[in-house]
């Protein structure tokens, strides 16, 4: 069992790098796309709303594997057209196809998560901003988005973990991520324990991710904890600010 690890361990680690790369890039692209789309999805204008609803129901309603095949094999059907458009280099490469599919898929999920977050922003706090004369951009920047991401944060972490593991199907279109290498090693050695090692790699990655995510979440929700150590202001500091204030006036 450990002999296998010595011989093939580096390959599995190569796979881990590929898995991390695929997940990180596609989830980041999705993270950038999902926010503006979620805001448009909430607009009352049906010209914005309906295409986004269709997009979301397609990507949430069909298997990721089917989407991947549609992009990778489907694009082959349109090779002449894609060549003419100068896009064939992109669709020819399984790596790019996987990235595109995963990004589109994750965008759909993240979009819905953020929509829920936007809906749950305490309305009174937004109104307080409106009453101060804040323009829309400031409202989003200072009030709406901090709340939205705090509310959506656990669900977003969940989605990223699902994407990390769902990404294993990239191995079906010849990509050598953790799963791709594992399948290859198995076909050469017929040693079933390689799947155990693969599972362990996924487990380590997700565990580290969960820990990091929890730290970030604590930071985002720090205002919700009971404050024990309040930085007390000394009377000296208090009077000095008062004097400064009266100097200004």
């Amino acid at each position: 069992m450990f002999e296998l690890l010595i011989n093939y361990g580096p390959k599995l680690l190569d796979g881990a790098v590929m898995t991390l790369q695929l997940t990180f890039i596609s989830v980041s692209i999705a993270g950038l796309l999902s926010l503006p789309l979620a805001i448009l999805r909430r607009s009352k204008n049906i010209l914005w709303q309906w295409p986004i609803r269709l997009y979301v129901s397609f990507f949430r309603g069909t298997p990721l594997l089917a989407q991947l095949f549609l992009v990778y094999y489907g694009s082959g059907q349109f090779r002449p057209e894609l060549t003419e458009l100068g896009l064939w280099w992109f669709f020819r490469d399984p790596y790019y196809c996987a990235l595109l599919t995963f990004a589109l898929n994750s965008t759909a999920y993240q979009l819905e998560i953020l929509r829920g977050g936007l809906q749950a922003v305490p309305y009174g706090e937004v109104e307080a901003g409106v009453a101060l004369g804040m323009p829309r951009r400031l409202l989003y920047q200072k009030i709406i988005l901090p709340h939205t991401y705090r509310i959506a944060f656990p669900a977003l972490g969940n989605e990223i973990i699902l994407m990390l593991k769902g990404g294993a199907i990239a191995s079906v279109i010849t990509l050598l991520d953790v799963m791709g290498h594992t399948r290859r090693v198995f076909s050469q050695t017929f040693d079933i324990s390689v799947y155990l090692w693969a599972a362990l790699i996924y487990l380590v990655i997700t565990t580290v991710f969960v820990l990091v995510w929890r730290l970030l979440e604590r930071r985002l929700t720090r205002h919700m904890f009971y404050q024990r150590d309040i930085k007390r202001i000394t009377p000296v500091e208090a009077t000095s600010t008062k004097m400064e204030a009266s100097n200004v006036n």
Binding site: P122, G124, E125, E127, A128, G129, V130, A131, L132, G133, M134, P135, K142, I143, P146, H147, R150, H223, M224
Partner: peptide, 24 residues
């Protein structure tokens, strides 16, 4: 919209439910 925002900024509003920004 800009006129409304400018006017709002010189009318101070205090709400029944405070509406302080909880993350600040």
């Amino acid at each position: 919209q800009q006129q409304i925002e400018r006017i709002r900024s010189c009318l101070g509003m205090v709400f029944q439910s405070f509406n302080l920004w909880s993350h600040m």
